[in-house]
């Protein structure tokens, strides 16, 4: 797949809450076809502290506006700087990177995300709808003040919600949500992104329920396009690169 590297123009920087924001980035060139699960490598400002690019999942693609969006959680210097970008400023991206979620031909789909891990699921929801598949979402947040974009997700499917503190939706980790305690589990396909511990737990549940499960990994990486061999994960085929053979893996293949 041909890859590109060029500046995008910040169209919007939308603060969702104290830790999360959405950057909508407009491309000066027509966007190539992009698939849900793929990511970009962002050049923050190449200062001594943010020397390497930062990887982010593609949160949404709007071909009509020629934009792609990132949903970012502030973690350190790079994401803090990105959070201060103003409309009209530029951001250099390498994209589209990595593989993508498989699109099922039949069966019921559950998209599971926690924290910034929900990022690729909006795009996946939109994509599935365009393939005439209506997924359900299960989304976990820390607390009510971080719950956001529920209306947006609802456009693409039913939304189940959990918060760690119970301030909105069901209380607890999303793996404790009642969708998993139904007597007959309705989902044939699960797609999951979030912290490693959460993905582990979801993959385990999926295996127990006999549902297929794909997870999107966020290993530390340098290049993002397959040459440095830093972001490897162990699979049934030995060490595979999260940035090329992933970030999406069939959970059953992982030796994590």
């Amino acid at each position: 797949m041909k890859k590109f590297v060029h500046d995008f123009i910040v169209a919007f920087n939308n603060r969702l809450n104290s830790r999360h924001f959405i950057l909508e980035l407009q491309s000066p060139l027509p966007l190539p076809e992009i698939f849900p699960g793929q990511f970009v490598q962002v050049l923050v400002h190449n200062s001594p502290a943010t020397f390497l690019r930062r990887p982010f999942s593609i949160h949404f693609v709007d071909y009509a506006k020629n934009t792609l969006s990132l949903l970012v959680q502030v973690r350190g210097e790079g994401t803090r700087h990105m959070g201060m970008l103003k409309p009209g400023e530029t951001l250099n991206l390498v994209y589209p990177l990595g593989n993508f979620f498989s699109i099922p031909s039949s069966g019921k789909v559950l998209l599971v995300g926690g924290g910034a891990g929900v990022a690729p699921l909006m795009f996946m929801g939109d994509y599935l709808n365009r393939k005439n598949i209506r997924p359900d979402f299960l989304i976990g947040f820390r607390s009510a003040d971080e719950v956001s974009q529920i209306d947006e997700y609802s456009k693409y499917g039913r939304v189940f919600l959990s918060t760690d503190d119970g301030s909105m939706g069901e209380k607890g980790f999303l793996t404790q949500h009642s969708v998993f305690s139904q007597s007959s589990f309705p989902y044939d396909h699960m797609y999951c992104c979030g912290p490693d511990a959460m993905m582990h737990a979801v993959a385990k549940l999926a295996a127990a329920k006999g549902s297929a499960c794909e997870v999107s990994l966020e290993n530390f990486m340098a290049c993002g396009y397959g040459v440095c061999l830093c972001c490897i994960t162990q699979t049934d085929k030995g060490n595979e690169r999260v940035c090329v053979e992933g970030p999406v893996f069939d959970a059953a293949r992982l030796r994590w």
Binding site: P48, A49, T50, F51, L52, N219, F220, M221, A222, C228, L229, C230, C231, I232, T233
Partner: peptide, 10 residues
């Protein structure tokens, strides 16, 4: 893994 760490200018 992990096989990399970012350090100042490197």
């Amino acid at each position: 893994y992990p096989r990399m760490a970012e350090t100042p200018s490197g």
